[in-house]
Design a protein around this nucleic acid. Structure first.
Length: 401
RNA sequence: GCGUCGGUGGCGGAGUGGUCAAUCGCACUAGACUGUAAAUCUGGCGCCUUCGGGCUUCGAAGGUUCGAAUCCUUCCCGGCGCA
C-alpha cells in the first residue's frame, strides 16, 4: 500500500504544467498547491484555525528545528505532529538539508536562497579562502555536524538519522537528506556535493523502506545540481529512477537560472509522481513553476514578509510601515477575500505595525498566506479552464508593473 | 535673594579645547527578505551639493585662543537646598 496517490487531471498544452490531486493519509491536496511553512510546528503568529481559514491545504515543518526543540521523541509521545500542533490536514517535513546550507556555507554571509547574478561577487567561490569563516554546520561524507543555534551543542545528522527523526515526527510526506549548495560554488564542488546528495538519497530511501513507516509516510527524493545543465539532468535521472514517492527540487538559485533549472529537471523526472519546488516562492516564481510542471511549493516569504511589514497586493508589494498608509481607510487589497481585508483598514494595520503589536504579524500573515495560497489555487483552476496563459499575463502585468 | 546643579540635533542622553555636524538609544524615513539562526536585518536622518565639498549649529550675547559644544564674563531659563 502506497502512502500517497497522485493523479493528473489535466495538462497545460505544450508545457509541462499540470493540475491534479495528491491523496495523503490526512486529506487530499489539489495540485498545484502552496505549502504553508510552519518550521517549529507552528505557522508563526497563527493558530491552526487561522491557517485553515487562509485556504491552506498542507503545512511543512522542519526536522532540524524540531529535533533540537522539543525533540522528535517528545513529538512522537504526543502522537506525532498532527496531534501535537493540532493540524489534521497533510503535513510535510523538510529533512534538514537546507540547514546544511543556511547554517553552513551561508552562515553569517549575505547569501540567500535566491540571489542575483548581476552581482558578480556572489559567484566567486565561497570555498576558496574561507576556512576560517564561522559556520554552524560542517559537512562530512556520511552526514553533517551541526552546532545548535540555540545552545551551541554539537549534533551529527546522517541521512538515516534525518529519516528516523522524520518518522518520529510523523508527517505525511518527508524528504531525503540532501545538501543544498550555493550557486557561487565551483562546478567541481557542485559535482562533489551532488554525488554526496545522491549517496544520501540512497541511504535515506533504504532506511525508510526498512521501516513500517514507509506504508504511512511518503518519502520524496531531492534533485540538486546547482546551475549546471548536465548536473541537474544527471541528478533528475539518478533520483528519478529511484523508488521515491515524489521529488523535491532543491538548491539556492540565481533568479535568472530558476526557470531553466526547473525545466531541465522536470523534463527528466517521471511524469506520474509529484514534484515539489523547495523554498519557492514569490508570485512570479509560482507562475514559472506551475507552467514548468511543479506541483508543490513551500516558502517562508508570505509569513516572514508579513512580519517585516511587506504585504502582497495585485498591484505589487506594499510596506505597511510606509507613511502613506497611516490614514488609509481602505483594505490592503479590495479584491482580496481574506478575513484581514474584510475587517481591517490599512490605517489600523499601519497603527498595529508601528506600535509593534503582535496582531500586526497575525493579520498580515493571514493576508499574505491567503494571497499566495489563493494565487496558486487560481492557477490550478486556470489550467482546468484552459486560461492559464491569460491569468499569468494579466496578473504579472499588474503585479510587476 | 543667596547657594548649588544643569540647559546639546524631534525626544532621551553622550561628549567637556582640535581627530565634532557632534557616540548611542528611541522616534521618524526608505529598503531588503524565496525548503525560517528571522515579531529579523540594512541604509538615511541640520541645510545645500556638480558628492570633491560647502554652509549654519550644542540656551543668548560678548570674550580668551591659531582653534570653543567644551574655558571666562554677563544675561535668560529650569531643578534642588537655604532664606
Amino acid at each position: 500500500m502506497k502512502p500517497i496517490k497522485f493523479s493528473i487531471i489535466k495538462e497545460l498544452q505544450g508545457k509541462l504544467g499540470r493540475a491534479g490531486t495528491l491523496e495523503t493519509p490526512h486529506g487530499v491536496i489539489p495540485t498545484p498547491a502552496f505549502v504553508t511553512v510552519g518550521t517549529k510546528a507552528t505557522v508563526k503568529a497563527l493558530s491552526t484555525d487561522d491557517v485553515k481559514n487562509t485556504g491552506a491545504d498542507v503545512v511543512l515543518a522542519n526536522t532540524y528545528h524540531l529535533y533540537l526543540q522539543p525533540g522528535d521523541e517528545r513529538v512522537k509521545k504526543f502522537g506525532g505532529l498532527h496531534k501535537f500542533m493540532n493540524w489534521f490536514g497533510p503535513i510535510m517535513t523538510d529533512s534538514g538539508g537546507f540547514q546544511v546550507f543556511s547554517l553552513g556555507a551561508a552562515y553569517g554571509k549575505n547569501l540567500n536562497k535566491v540571489i542575483s547574478i548581476t552581482d558578480p561577487s556572489r559567484l566567486i567561490s565561497e570555498r576558496s579562502m574561507d576556512h576560517e569563516a564561522p559556520r554552524l554546520a560542517t559537512i562530512g561524507s556520511d552526514g553533517v555536524s551541526f552546532r545548535s543555534h540555540l545552545d551551541g551543542s554539537l549534533h551529527y545528522i546522517t541521512p538515516e538519522k534525518s529519516v528516523e527523526i522524520q518518522h518520529n515526527l510523523g508527517a505525511d510526506i518527508i524528504f531525503a537528506f540532501d545538501e543544498c549548495t550555493s550557486p557561487s560554488e565551483t562546478v567541481a564542488y557542485q559535482e562533489e556535493a551532488l554525488d554526496r546528495t545522491h549517496r544520501w538519497a540512497k541511504k535515506s530511501l533504504e532506511y525508510h523502506k526498512s521501516k513500517i513507516n514507509s506504508e504511512s509516510q511518503a518519502l520524496f527524493g531531492i534533485v540538486q545540481g546547482g546551475r549546471e545543465e548536465n548536473l541537474r539532468k544527471r541528478s533528475a535521472e539518478f533520483i528519478g529512477r529511484m523508488d521515491f514517492d515524489g521529488f523535491g527540487i532543491g538548491g539556492s538559485f540565481a533568479k535568472e537560472d530558476m526557470s531553466t533549472a526547473v525545466l531541465w529537471v522536470n523534463g527528466v523526472l517521471p511524469k506520474d509522481k509529484p514534484r515539489h519546488l523547495l523554498g519557492i516562492g514569490e508570485p512570479e516564481d509560482l507562475f514559472m513553476g506551475v507552467e514548468n510542471g511543479v506541483d508543490l511549493f513551500d516558502c517562508v516569504a508570505p509569513t516572514r514578509r508579513a512580519r517585516g511589514g511587506t504585504l502582497y497586493t495585485e498591484e505589487g508589494k506594499i510596506n505597511i510601515g510606509n507613511a502613506q498608509f497611516v490614514e488609509a481607510e481602505g483594505p490592503i487589497d479590495p479584491r482580496c477575500g481574506c478575513s484581514t481585508c474584510k475587517d481591517y483598514s490599512l490605517g489600523y494595520l499601519s497603527h498595529l505595525y508601528r506600535s509593534k503589536e503582535m496582531l500586526a504579524s497575525t493579520l498580515g500573515s493571514i493576508h499574505n498566506l491567503y494571497f499566495i495560497t489563493n494565487l496558486v489555487k487560481r492557477m490550478r483552476q486556470a489550467i482546468l479552464d484552459d486560461n492559464f496563459e491569460k491569468l499569468k499575463t494579466d496578473f504579472l502585468a499588474k503585479y510587476l508593473k
